[in-house]
Structures are given as structure tokens and as C-alpha cells.
Design a protein around this nucleic acid. Sequence first.
DNA 1: AACTACTTGCAATAAATTTGCAAGTAGTGT
DNA 2: ACACTACTTGCAAATTTATTGCAAGTAGTT
Lengths: 135, 135
Amino acid sequence: MAETIRDAGFRATKPRLALFSRLTKTSRPMSIQELAQELAGKVDQVTVYRMIDAFKKAGLVREVHLRGVRPKYELTDPRDDHHHIVCTECRKVEDFVGCGAEKMGKEALRQSRSFAAITGHTFDLYGLCKECITK
Amino acid sequence: MAETIRDAGFRATKPRLALFSRLTKTSRPMSIQELAQELAGKVDQVTVYRMIDAFKKAGLVREVHLRGVRPKYELTDPRDDHHHIVCTECRKVEDFVGCGAEKMGKEALRQSRSFAAITGHTFDLYGLCKECITK
DNA sequence: AACTACTTGCAATAAATTTGCAAGTAGTGT
DNA sequence: ACACTACTTGCAAATTTATTGCAAGTAGTT
Ligand SMILES: [Mn+2]
Ligand SMILES: [Mn+2]
Ligand SMILES: [Zn+2]
Ligand SMILES: [Zn+2]
């Protein structure tokens, strides 16, 4: 843990460990505000901004954009690229893996007259969870 | 044009016509700031915020989230769901159509233990345009 | 032309994010 | 263990972005 942070080129300070630790404890991406609130008393909100920004640049954290809410952050999952499915009613968020992005990337390049390479993608699903769909 | 706005339940005011008209003139989604700047002198920025919000709720406009920038807006295209491919170097944005989202939605539902239906999705590609890839 | 509910502009407020800087600390070397 | 120093942090202040209140203006109607 401190190891991971040092490997990324940072000092393993208490605020960084607190943030990193908090992020390992959830599968749900969290906003700056949520993180700052949870770390309140221990870490200043400005520091949360700065840490997230630095972690993002270092590739430790990735930014997730879901409809209608401020950006959220989660630890980068080195194994797979996973995506999110969001309940539009209760805002529940769940991960899912696998997406046809590679194939779609190729198809998009075929369609495009001005693009030459695909390096990344976003893909998120919106729907209703089993609880909300009954209402 | 005024027709479309009235059909959505709004009065066809000059600011609304100006905004709508501007949006029809581009295929590139635009931010509040860009829109306000272009309409400067004619429409107040607060009004841009309010119009975009109302148009969004009415389904005339949709919000597009691309990495690292504030939300952008474009006219809803009722015919197809189109997506965006963004050059990470020069920020060029191009549309592309068709995406395996329906299929992926079904696969995601199969994977999920708590979701029951898919109602929407986002999908965007990032890459390099032909000009930027040479550098 | 008069009426009225819907809209707009402008100022003020609130919320989100960034910046400056002195004080604090992790990692390094002694 | 102690000192050294570059990297970090907290706190206040400044910016930027977004929302709200309200009097004045206007589209659509009678
Ligand atoms: Mn996730
Ligand atoms: Mn588009
Ligand atoms: Zn739900
Ligand atoms: Zn480019």
C-alpha cells in the first residue's frame, strides 16, 4: 500500500494512505466531496483535490463520468477495463466487465475519414435495478 | 425551428431561437461557456444555463461528457444514437454511429445480480487523428 | 390593444476548484 | 538517533462555475 504509493513516485504520507485506503474499501466510484467528507478531520479538502489530481496523472486513479453528477474516482483496476451500470432511479452503481470496445473501435476507424488510432474508450450503461423496476 | 421549440412546450423567444440556431450550426458539442461567449451581447449567460437545462429536460438537447472537460451539449438527434471519437492530442471531435450497446446491455444484465433493465448508455472513443498521429 | 403567464437580465449568492505560502514531514544521509 | 531538504499539507484567499431572487420584458392569447 505505502509501497504502491512510493512506486508511483510519491511519499507515503498519512493523507495519501488515508485516501488510498478509503478507495480500496469501495467498488463504487466516489466524488471529491464524498471523499473529503469521509476524510474530514484527517485530510483537508484541498489536499483531496491535489491527491486525486496527482494519482490520476500517475495512473493510480481514474476519473469516471456518470450522467448528471460530478466526476467520481476509483482505483485503476490493472487487470481489466471495467465499466459501470447505473440505476437511474436510485443511483446504485455496479461494475461490469467486457465490452465490445475494441471491435467498435475498428468499426469507428473504418467509418472515420480523419481518425487513425483508438487508444481508449468510455462505456457506461443506465437502467433500472431489480428493486426500482417494480415501482 | 420556432415550431420545434413550441412543440417542446416553450415560447419561441429570441434567446431560445438564437441558442437553438447556434446548435444546429455545429456537429461539435459545445460547452455552456462556448455558447454564452458566442451569444454574448444577445443572451445572458444565466439564460444559457437555464435554456440548456430546460432543453435537456425536454429532450431537445443532450449532455455529452468527454474526458477532462466540462459538459458539452448538442441537439438530440432523434434518428440514431450517435457517439463521439475524440483526438486526445488536438481535441478534435467526430461523430460515429452504431455501437454494440444493445448486445452489451444484454450481456451486462446476464452478469449482473441486481439490475433488471437497460434504458440507455454512453460510449465514446479516444484516439489520435491522422494529423496528430504523425507527430 | 390589453392581459397574463412565461422569460429574461442583472445583481447577488452559493458551490466548486485553484492558487499562494508558511509550516510540517517523509525519505535520505550522517 | 539527528539533521537536512525537497516534497506535502493545511489554511486562507482568489477564481471559476453554477444557482437563485426578483423586477422588467415579451410571446401567445383574448
Ligand atoms: Mn468501478
Ligand atoms: Mn455529436
Ligand atoms: Zn435502483
Ligand atoms: Zn488530433
